[in-house]
Lab assay of single mutants.
Amino acid sequence: GLMCLEHEDEKVNMYCVTDDQLICALCKLVGRHRDHQVAALSE
């Protein structure tokens, strides 16, 4: 899978609806997407 741009060791596994961007779990937990609307990726 694709790796996160901000956290190079994390794979992107969710999608930020607010930013129209693929993000990883760390982005959602501690990153700038924590208050955004996110959706899980169905692979």
Rank of each mutant, 00 (worst) to 15 (best):
T18C: 05
H36C: 09
Y15C: 11
A39T: 14
A40T: 11
Q21S: 11
E43D: 05
E8L: 13
R34G: 11
L29H: 14
A39F: 02
K28R: 13
Q21D: 08
V30Y: 09
L29T: 14
L2R: 14
C24K: 00
D19K: 01
E6F: 11
L41S: 13
L22W: 11
A40C: 09
H7W: 00
L26N: 14
L41Q: 13
Q37W: 01
N13R: 07
R34L: 03
D20G: 08
A25I: 04
V30F: 03
H36D: 00
L41K: 13
Y15T: 04
M3A: 09
C27I: 02
R32Q: 10
M3R: 08
T18R: 08
Q37S: 11
N13K: 11
D19M: 00
C24P: 00
C27S: 00
K11C: 13
D19C: 06
V30A: 13
D9C: 13
V12K: 15
G31D: 13
L2F: 04
R32F: 01
E43S: 11
E8R: 13
M14R: 11
A40M: 07
Y15V: 10
G1C: 03
E8S: 15
V17L: 08
L26K: 14
L41A: 12
M14K: 13
L5N: 07
D35F: 05
E10D: 06
H33M: 01
Q37K: 11
E10K: 12
L29G: 14
I23M: 10
Y15Q: 15
L2Y: 13
D35K: 08
H33D: 01
C24T: 01
N13Q: 10
H33P: 02
L41W: 10
G31P: 09
K11T: 05
D35H: 06
A40Q: 12
V17T: 09
E6N: 05
H7A: 01
N13V: 03
E8I: 07
R32D: 08
R32T: 12
S42I: 02
A25K: 10
E43C: 15
Q37I: 02
A40P: 14
R34T: 08
L29W: 05
V30Q: 14
A40F: 12
Q37G: 07
I23N: 01
D9H: 08
L29S: 15
L2A: 15
G1S: 06
K11Y: 06
A25D: 08
V38H: 12
L5G: 08
V30N: 13
Q37F: 03
Q21A: 10
